[in-house]
Write a protein that binds this DNA or RNA. Structure first.
Lengths: 227, 227
DNA sequence: TAGATTGTTAATCGATTAACAATC
DNA sequence: TAGATTGTTAATCGATTAACAATC
């Protein structure tokens, strides 16, 4: 009877940041925190913090702030950090291996069940406890375990093909690290982790700044509008 | 005399995507492409494509589209894919190693000069051609080579400390993969690659969808507003 | 009570989408 | 010429920031 709570995408992305700050505050022995301080530590505006938090909890106390334990609990609950989400990784290259072994994911409720690859030398091996399986077994395993989340770390050329296979097997959301735009049917969510796009922002800034400096100009953040 | 071209952040992030599509089109032997087709392949609206491209080039021909070779050249130029940007990675763990060895970066003009770590077992080794050096040498190397871009792949605990060291040595932009919000002085750009935030979006969607399904509800993309 | 800080409404800002005259 | 597609202006949309009465 709880239905679907609609929440802005940007807000959703900030929630884990708040959560991390709160955990740290707890370690420091704090009991309450104001939107102002939370915002400062998280890097967001205080009004933004209040607005974000009100999407999931209205327990802040005027004059006092938010009770950290309660708020953290609330966030953990909302983000599903308590129950785990099963996922598979496709591609046992360097990036896939790094993600499979990333210790941070456990804390965020992600459970990598298997890594798939087509290289016979890798198949049969494992990354920590996670087995490396042949891609041929992918559809069956996804179906049998009811996996909903897939992570793609293969080269661009094979990404679409593997996406199709995963979608056909019932995958609902894809975290894509391959430098291609995947085509998926309505209802499947793709999140592109486009390293080149990130890099573009940074190297553009660096280059602009350097040339501005050479010309003795001030930069005042104008190189990239709006950030 | 060229000054600083101001460009919206979002536009800047889309440019590498256009570039990749164009390269692929060239391989397919195409000569011209319309904003409509480019948009379809890249996953953006056609009006958006025209607007984005006009920031850097107004050479599109009504009725015909954009000459692919010229446009690609223009993009490569703007994004600085021809001259390289030197960078260092801090943290020779799995993720740092994966990034240091990522073959895709070369194509985007990124040149990793060194990877720093504090583990004596790793120091002196290398990742491909890239040497692993002790963090103690970080300030000197950054200064000597005039490095402007740093990539952080250490655990959260040591990220701030290493950031401070890099900034003191003259780093201007930081690509942060550690799950913390870094404090930097005015003028230094931080780009957070927050894996937990990405994950939150995806697992939220998956969970909401699953519960909606159980309850026999339609989802129509309402789980996450605005994407 | 005085001071601090909330939740929320209104104002601002930036980004996306629609529309269309200009032109190849 | 007829059809297609550009560059750009106007309309819409969503997200951020400011402001403030309510309240601990």
């Amino acid at each position: 009877m709880d239905g679907i709570i609609s929440i802005p995408k940007r807000t959703l992305e900030r929630l884990p940041v708040y959560y991390r700050v709160l955990v740290q505050c707890l370690n420091e022995g704090m009991e309450y925190i104001s939107s102002g301080e939370l915002g400062e530590r998280a890097g967001f505006d205080n009004a933004q913090v209040r607005k974000d938090l009100n999407h999931i909890w209205s327990g802040g106390r005027p004059g006092l702030g938010y009770e950290i334990v309660k708020l953290a609990e609330c966030l953990a609950d909302f983000l599903g950090l308590n129950n785990t989400t099963d996922a598979v990784i496709v591609g046992a290259g360097r990036l896939g291996t790094a993600l499979a072994g990333y210790p941070g994911f456990g804390g965020y409720g992600l459970n990598i069940v298997a890594v798939f690859d087509s290289d016979p030398d890798k198949i049969g091996g494992s990354i920590g406890d996670i087995p490396i399986l042949p891609v041929a077994k992918l559809p069956d395993l996804i179906r049998r375990l009811g996996i909903r989340l897939g992570i793609i770390t293969v080269p661009g050329e094979s990404a679409q093909e593997l996406t199709d296979a995963m979608v056909a097997a019932g995958i609902l959301a894809i975290w894509n690290f391959a430098p291609v735009r995947l085509q998926v049917p309505e209802g499947v969510l793709v999140r592109n982790e486009d390293l080149a796009a990130s890099l573009a922002t940074l190297s553009y800034y660096v280059r602009r700044y350097s040339s501005a400096k050479e010309e003795g100009q001030a930069l005042d953040g104008a190189a990239v509008k709006g950030s």
